Simulated scan of single mutants.
Amino acid sequence: MVVTLPDLGPLAWAALVVGALTVGISKTALPGANTLGIALFAAVLPAKESTGAMLMLLVVGDALALLLYRRHADWRVLARLAPSVVAGLLVGVVFLALADDAGVRRVIGAILLALVALTLWNRRRASARGSTTRGSHIAAASYGSLGGFTTMVANAGGPVMSMYFLASRFSRQAFLGTAAWFFAVLNLAKLPFSIGLGLIDLSTLALDLLLLVPVLAGGAIGWFALRRMSQRVFDVLVTLLTIAGAVYLLL
C-alpha cells in the first residue's frame, strides 16, 4: 500500500514543525501553548483533517508529561470532572460529524474567549472571598463539558481546562500533573472516534512520524523553561496564549 504525504510547500512544513514544537512545550511547561499549534495546523490543513493529524502528536506529548509530572495529579479533581467530560466528548463527536471547517474554528474561538473572561472574573471574585473554584461541582461540570467538547472537535481542550486549573489556583506542578493524566486518558479515548470519522489514516500517521522529533524537542524546551519560571509568569503566559489562539480561530 502506497502512503502519500500532503503536497505542501516549505512554509507550510515550517508551520507544521513550529506547531509540533508547541505541542511538546504545552505538555511540559505552558498548557494552552498548543493553541498556536492548532491554529498553524488548521492554516495548513483542512480544519477537520488537522484535528486528526495533531491527535497522535498530543498522545506523544501526554507520554512526556506523565513521565515528568505524573505524581503531582489531584485525583479528586479528575474524578469530579469525569462525567461532564464524557458528555461533552459525545456532543463533540456529533458536532464534528455535521459541522463545516469554518463553523468548527469560530465556535472554538468564541468558547475560548468567553472562558478567559469567565476565569479571570472567577479568580478575582474567589480572591476577594479567599476561596477557589476547585471544590465547585458547577465549575467542574461547566469546564468539564466544554473541555470534552472542544478537545473532540478541535483538540482545543487544553486551553479550556487550563482556565479551570488556573481558576482553581493549582501550583505549576499540580497543574501539569493533573492535566497530564486528564489528557492522556481523554486523547486515547478519542482515537476510536477519530479513526471512525476518517480523521486518522496511514497518511496522517506518516505525517506525524516526520513531526515526532519537534514534539520531543518542544518537550525538552518546556521542561527546561518551567524550572526557571515563577508561578505568576506561568499564570500570565497561560492566559495570554489562550487569548491569542482564540482570536486567531475567530478571524
Rank of each mutant, 00 (worst) to 15 (best):
V77Y: 06
V91I: 15
A65R: 09
V91Y: 08
L64D: 04
R80E: 02
R70G: 02
L68E: 11
L81G: 01
L66F: 07
V60K: 00
V93Y: 10
A87M: 09
A65M: 06
A65C: 08
G92F: 12
W75Q: 00
V94C: 03
R70W: 12
L89C: 11
G88T: 01
L67E: 07
L66Y: 01
L68K: 08
G88H: 15
D62E: 10
V93P: 04
Y69G: 10
A73N: 02
V77G: 14
V91G: 04
V94R: 07
R76C: 03
V91T: 03
H72D: 09
P83M: 03
L78P: 06
L78F: 02
G61V: 10
L66C: 13
W75V: 06
A73M: 01
V77Q: 11
L90G: 05
P83C: 06
F95L: 14
A63W: 06
W75G: 00
S84M: 14
R71V: 04
H72F: 02
V94E: 06
G92C: 11
G88I: 07
G92R: 04
A73C: 00
P83T: 04
G61C: 04
L89G: 13
L90H: 01
L81I: 09
R80S: 05
A82F: 07
Y69M: 14
G88K: 15
L90P: 06
D74N: 06
V60A: 12
V77S: 11
R80A: 14
V60M: 02
A82C: 12
V60E: 00
V86A: 10
S84W: 04
V86H: 08
L68D: 13
L64M: 06
H72W: 07
R76I: 06
D62C: 11
R71K: 11
V77P: 05
V93N: 12
L81H: 14
L90Y: 12
V59Q: 05
S84Q: 03
L78W: 01
P83D: 14
Y69N: 07
G61S: 02
G61I: 00
Y69K: 05
L64P: 00
L81E: 06
G92N: 08
L68H: 09
V85G: 08
L67N: 08
Y69P: 04
H72C: 04
L67M: 12
V59A: 01
G88R: 01
P83Y: 12
S84E: 02
W75D: 02
L90E: 10
A79G: 06
H72T: 11
A79Q: 09
G88F: 05
L66R: 04
L90N: 07
F95A: 09
V91S: 11
P83Q: 08
V85S: 05
D62Q: 08
A65F: 14
R76N: 04
R71E: 07
G61H: 09
Y69T: 03
R70Q: 08
A65I: 07
R76A: 00
A82V: 14
F95G: 07
A87K: 07
